[in-house]
Simulated scan of single mutants.
Amino acid sequence: MAKLYFYYASMNAGKSSTLLQADFNYRERGMRTMLWTAQLDTRSEGRVKSRIGLEADAHRYAPDTDLWTAVTAAHRAEPIDCVLIDEAQFLTRQQVWQCARLADEAGLPVVCYGLRTDFQGELFPGSAALLGIADKLVELKGVCHCGRKATMNLRVDASGAAVKEGAQTEVGGNDRYVALCRKHFSEALGHTR
């Protein structure tokens, strides 16, 4: 029975490289995958890219993309063995339910990779829906500068100072975000205990 998976972590924990390794494993065995990434992430240019240099072509989804229709049409044309979605925090709630339907009705495993929380410690809508309905949740481990598990994503400005307010989504990499443990995240934002 196919399942809906959610692999989540802080920034720089290896989500994209784990996705690309899974893609390689399927393809090495002669199986066909379908990769997706968020259109919102303009850095990717239609590719899943990892910090360690691995990358692969991917379809791009926007908030209005009907994943059920797109994937089932491709699956009818040439059978797909697994759907892999990067930047899954940007999925809408409806798209997460479409992913569940792909697993439940089309019999396709759907493996999503994304951030759990934003720069203020709030759940992304796509992540919240995945945490609620995925068959399997897997936390990938990132590391804070202190050696503890990094679970938070601190947004920083050009000088490296913590950003406390702003839009939930701002695309960026190491220049805009730092993965931290909760203690150092709270200290950086000046949260009192």
Rank of each mutant, 00 (worst) to 15 (best):
D157K: 01
Q94E: 15
E122I: 10
S10E: 02
A129Q: 15
A9V: 06
D86S: 12
G166L: 12
A161Y: 08
T18L: 06
L130N: 02
F124V: 09
L84G: 05
C144M: 07
A58E: 00
E187A: 14
I133E: 15
L67S: 08
R32P: 01
D66V: 05
R32F: 00
D66Q: 08
Y61M: 06
L108E: 06
G132A: 14
Q21M: 06
A38R: 04
L102M: 13
E28W: 10
D23M: 06
L4K: 03
C146K: 08
A77V: 13
L40Y: 11
T69E: 15
D41H: 08
A134V: 07
F6S: 05
Q98L: 01
L35I: 03
V138W: 05
H75L: 11
E170A: 12
P125Q: 13
A88I: 03
K3W: 03
R182N: 12
Y8N: 05
C181S: 02
T117R: 14
L102E: 09
H59V: 11
F24G: 00
K183F: 08
A103Q: 01
Y7F: 12
E165L: 04
Q98Y: 00
V156H: 10
T65F: 02
L115N: 00
K3A: 03
W68A: 08
V156L: 13
V48M: 07
K49T: 03
A103E: 02
T18S: 10
H145S: 07
T65P: 01
V138K: 12
A129E: 15
A58W: 00
V171A: 09
E105N: 13
G121V: 00
Q98G: 01
E105D: 14
L19W: 03
A188Y: 02
F90R: 06
S186L: 02
A38V: 12
M11Y: 06
L154H: 01
G126Y: 10
V83L: 12
Q98D: 04
M34T: 03
K141W: 03
L180F: 04
L84S: 05
G166S: 11
D81I: 04
A62D: 10
K136T: 11
L4W: 01
G190L: 07
R76E: 14
K164C: 13
V171R: 03
K164Y: 12
I133A: 14
P63L: 13
A38H: 04
C82Y: 00
F6Y: 11
P125A: 14
S10F: 01
A179M: 01
S17C: 08
A58P: 00
Y26Q: 07
R101A: 15
E187W: 03
L123G: 04
